[in-house]
Simulated scan of single mutants.
Amino acid sequence: MFLSFPRRVRPGAVVAAALLLSAGCAADPGGPAEERTEAVVDAAAHQATAVEPALTVTDPRGTEVSLDAPPESVVCLVALCDDILLELGLRPAATSNPQILAHEGFLGEEADEVPVVPGGFGNEDVEAITRLEPDLVIGLAGSHEGLAPALGTSTTVWLTDSRSWQDSVDYLRAAAALTGRGEQQAAAEQRFYDALADAQATAAEEGLAELKPLVLYGSDGSFQVDSRGSIVGGLLDQVFDYDWADRGTGGHQAGGSDYSMEEILAGDPDLIFLESFTFSPDDAPLSEQFADDPVWNRIEAVREDRVYEVDLAPWATGRGTRSLGIVLGDAVDLARR
């Protein structure tokens, strides 16, 4: 079972800060979560429409955000923000998430051009942010409440809390309204739904839809499962048979759930995606950490070498439509092997 520290955080303050910076833990949904995924959507039928510009929006969690003018300078303290801005054809004035920007599906080598906000995740340097004179700072509910009062005197703070892939689409739409980028939003939204439609079609045509994948994340041999109530699990459930129930035990991660290795063995996944949080070159990925576990080695997917280490940036931290499109592509490509 997963230990009693938050998702992707191992004991030790220094390591915990590094982990939070990488993962950007989301707010606790509060107790056992209902299944957040709806019936499988017909993504091929989706026609994205551009949102109208608005200086006041209400986000998927019911938070109202009001500005005096469309923001020209936005600081991102959560990777969802970086994802959204790039989808809208913008760049952050500064970021706490250089890893996501450095991904080849984002800015790649140009990520170095975006200043990095000093300070650990959830404890970013307020003075450094203030000096940038941003019009809007986008952070994460459950992590940045402590910064909001100090920053709120000079700028507007928007604390996001995406708990499903549908939420991520709605956050894109809300940000597009604020920035007046409806045309770019509609294009990005359509690209995401097209990627989902392609994944669904490929899975149906090639017999992949009946596969039962598992997303497992952790560090130091401790782990949890992304249930179908999580963002990634719910998305994969639109393509595959992602039959891992949400137990509401994910701590800071909506849809994260405790499963024992014995329960994973009994669940019999066809393939396993691993999100390994490592903090130094000497740290081993989860596939190596589990190598001597006798129960792990009895899982058929392990015996058939259908265990894949995936890129943390889009899979674990991105949460936005660009990241989720990458996840879909990765998942289908790996399932076809």
Rank of each mutant, 00 (worst) to 15 (best):
L77M: 11
S143L: 14
A174V: 06
D82Q: 11
V169L: 12
T179I: 08
S73F: 03
L136P: 04
G152A: 15
P149V: 08
V78G: 09
S154G: 05
Y171I: 10
T155W: 13
W158G: 02
P98V: 03
I138Y: 03
V157G: 06
G180F: 08
W165Q: 02
E110H: 10
S168L: 02
D82P: 12
D170M: 15
R163A: 14
S154C: 04
S154V: 11
G122H: 05
A128N: 02
Q99M: 12
A69N: 04
E145F: 07
L77K: 06
T63F: 11
L159D: 12
G139L: 06
G62C: 13
A175H: 05
C76Q: 03
S143C: 08
C81F: 00
L77C: 06
H144F: 05
P70Q: 02
D125N: 14
G180K: 10
E133L: 03
F121T: 04
A175E: 07
E113A: 14
T153K: 06
I84Y: 05
V114H: 00
S96Q: 13
G122Q: 08
R163V: 14
H144R: 07
A111G: 07
P70Y: 06
R173M: 12
C81P: 01
E109I: 01
V169P: 07
R163P: 05
V78R: 03
G182N: 09
Q99V: 13
W158S: 02
C81T: 00
F121S: 07
L90A: 09
P115C: 10
A102M: 10
E64S: 13
D125V: 08
V75H: 01
D83S: 01
V78F: 10
G180N: 13
A111W: 04
L136E: 03
F106W: 15
G182V: 10
A177F: 03
G122D: 10
V78C: 11
V126D: 10
W158P: 03
P134E: 08
A177V: 05
G108L: 07
G182R: 09
L80M: 05
L67D: 02
G146H: 05
